[in-house]
Write a protein that binds this DNA or RNA. Structure first.
Length: 296
DNA sequence: AACACGGGGTG
DNA sequence: CACCCAGTGTT
């Protein structure tokens, strides 16, 4: 991609963002690393619309890393209820505790962030950029798709192209204003350059998009080689979620009374699920009873 | 590279 | 029912 085109794409995206960006999102009006970290962890695999109300409640209850660190893990899991991937809640609190101990607070240096549990390449870069205004590539699914299409002419961001995508995204970064640039690319991906039924007619980048120029070639069909996935209700994931919900409402409980509240098909595996949940730090076992972590 | 890990919204 | 969503950790 020629330098001149990249700089035009940057400016066009910036103009679009100033008018159409989601500037009112509460985690965008703060530069507090803790608040930004909370939002980024909540947003892992979870839509903005679902996170928005929960983020506000969370920050009201635990406005600082210190307050979250002092809470009981069981309390944290209850507050998380319904957001899914309960490990994220456990890791978020662990991250707060570790960061306070090691760094005296939530850092904005990518390398330090990366040492925290539940903080991977994306989240570390996002906190560094959005809270610390650091110039680093935060490649989430939206930005990856925008880069894949506009710059590389690919329909989707494919795993094998991850490194290429990162390089292209980096080349696209402005010298200054990285934060706004990446938020803009993210918003474009979320509202216009969508995974399915993208709105190319109204896209500000349509005249420069290599994917559109190539006639929007379809992505390769998903490798449908696998057997049809089991109904969600019969997955271990569903059962684990049920167990956490049961213990959030009423604990401590012996394994037998937990199992009794599960759907028939999951009862015999209840013990296995509990052990796995304990391994994830979500539940604990004391005196023949199970409860949410630190609740016993 | 492939899986496990939640749950709700959408077509 | 299938796919999608501001991913991470383990094998």
């Amino acid at each position: 991609m020629a330098t001149v085109e990249l700089s035009r794409l940057r400016r066009t995206l910036g103009r679009w963002y100033r008018v159409n960006g989601r500037h009112d999102l509460p985690w965008r009006t703060t530069r507090d690393p803790y608040a930004v970290l909370v939002s980024e962890v909540m947003l892992q695999q979870t839509q903005v619309s679902r996170v928005h109300p929960r983020y506000e409640t969370w920050l009201k209850r635990w406005p600082t890393a210190e307050s979250l660190a002092e809470a009981t893990t069981g309390t944290v899991i209850r507050e998380w209820a319904g957001l899914g991937y309960n490990r994220r809640a456990v890791n978020l609190q662990r991250a707060a505790r570790e960061a306070l101990e090691k760094f005296g607070g939530i850092p904005t240096e990518e390398a330090k962030l990366l040492t925290l549990p539940g903080v991977g390449p994306y989240t570390a870069a996002a906190v560094a950029c959005f809270a610390g205004d650091k110039r680093t590539v935060a490649l989430d699914t939206n930005i990856a798709r925008v880069v894949a299409r506009t710059l590389l002419g690919e329909a989707t961001a494919r795993v094998p192209h991850k490194q290429k995508l990162k390089e292209a995204a980096k080349a696209w970064l402005p010298k200054r204003g990285t934060r706004a640039h990446q938020l803009a690319a993210m918003d474009l991906g979320a509202t216009v350059c969508k995974a399915s039924s993208p709105a190319c007619e109204i896209c500000p980048l349509k005249s420069d998009c290599t994917w559109l120029a190539a006639g929007q070639p379809e992505a390769d069909p998903t490798p449908n080689g696998k057997v049809t996935a089991a109904p969600f209700k019969s997955t271990a994931r569903f059962a684990r979620g049920q167990i956490v919900a049961i213990l959030a409402k009423d604990s401590p409980l012996p394994a037998s009374s937990i199992a009794a509240q599960l759907p028939e098909e999951h009862q015999e595996n209840c013990g296995r699920y509990l052990e796995a949940l304990a391994g994830d730090g979500i539940v604990t076992f004391r005196k023949e009873h199970w409860g949410l972590a630190e609740d016993l």
